[in-house]
Amino acid sequence: MTINEIRTRIEALVDEGSGKTLKDAKSIKHIGIDPDKNMVIMIIAIAKTGGDEEKNLLRQIAKIVKVEMGFKGLKVQFEETKKLEGIGSNQKVKFIIVASGKGGVGKSTVACNLAYALARQNKKVGLIDADIYGSSVPRILEMEHEHPRANQEQKIIPFHAFGIELISTEFFAGEGKPVIWRGAMLNSMMNHFFFDVKWSKDLEYMIIDSPPGTGDIMLDLRNLAPTAEVLIVTTPHPSASDVATKAGLAYQQLKHNVVGVIENMSYYLNPANYNQEFIFGKGGGQLVAEKLGVELLTQIPINQPKHHLSLFEGDEETGKIYDELATIFTVRE
């Protein structure tokens, strides 16, 4: 049995509290399978939790999953629809997913610099560090480790750096500690980031630093931010560009709009003779763009910022490149 088969069966059920099918109400927030335990894990939003409506729906789901489909276990987390009012329900926010096929291509650095470039243009910007296993956003933004705080409504207060609101798994784990989670826990954390953080109501852009490759979070983002546009980051080297193409195709299959490709580490400008030296080869970004049928938006050189650890200011050549990249989105407002 596949997740799609489970979804097809479950989405026909009716939430008695709203009178709508789970499909019509877009109630199914997550479905996962734990193969080790032969268990199905779900997150479902319904009109009212804790009453007979929830109990009746749970019995119907259990009948389908355990009796008819043969799974040994079932775990369902019900959420009230009215409580799921977070950044994902803010129609004014433009979501931009920064993605890559593999790690080490500078995706997180691109995400942070794009967010910073938008902030320099006086835009209200949020940043979700969804690269849970390889979180580096706090380090890029030169932040000290501290644990999250909540307000009186028990909403998580986002952190702030360089005019950007942000949240990251790094703040929930011990300093320097690895995150070793299964898919269901990843989805739970993503839901917290979208629905349990007290994001400013006037946010205009939300940058999402997605984990490299394809996997659970890519599927979660399809549900959490269905209108998000995608930037694919690669280096010129074939080993990076090949898997970047696969990531881009996956986002297109999920009906996301892939805006274009960013070729990072394109060249090194030799200060001795001002020649461009192509350390990682040439043409990878253009190749990805052609295969995806999109534009190669920019080529970012290998460079060290003058003022910060990883962020470029507007008075630097690379900073100007990020300003131009940000303008691609702001001119479309």
Rank of each mutant, 00 (worst) to 15 (best):
N90F: 13
C112T: 15
I64K: 01
Y116V: 05
L58T: 07
S89K: 14
A130P: 03
I43G: 00
A117Y: 10
K92L: 08
G70A: 04
K94W: 05
V65R: 04
I46A: 03
I46M: 10
R139M: 13
Q60K: 15
A99S: 15
L127Q: 11
V67N: 15
M42Q: 04
G101H: 06
I87C: 00
F78Q: 06
L57H: 06
T109A: 04
R139H: 14
G101Y: 08
K107S: 03
A62E: 15
I61N: 04
T109P: 02
P138L: 07
I61L: 05
S108H: 12
E85W: 09
Q91M: 12
N90D: 13
Y133K: 02
K75H: 13
G104P: 03
K55I: 13
C112K: 09
G50Y: 12
A47K: 14
A47R: 09
G103R: 09
T81S: 08
G126I: 05
M69N: 02
A119M: 12
K94R: 15
I46N: 07
G73Q: 13
I61F: 06
Y133L: 11
K102T: 07
A117Q: 08
E68F: 09
L127P: 04
E79L: 14
A47N: 04
K92T: 08
I87F: 03
K107R: 04
E53D: 14
F95Y: 07
Q121R: 12
N113S: 03
V98A: 01
I96K: 02
G51M: 02
V65C: 06
E53Q: 12
L58C: 01
G106Y: 10
I97H: 00
V76R: 02
N113K: 00
Q60H: 09
K75E: 15
Q121E: 14
A119S: 15
G51E: 11
F71W: 09
R120G: 06
I128Q: 07
L127R: 09
A111T: 07
L141E: 05
E80S: 13
A117S: 14
A130V: 04
A119I: 12
V105D: 03
A117T: 05
V67E: 15
L114Q: 05
I96F: 07
L84V: 04
R59E: 14
A62D: 15
T81I: 10
S108P: 08
N122Q: 14
K66L: 10
D129K: 04
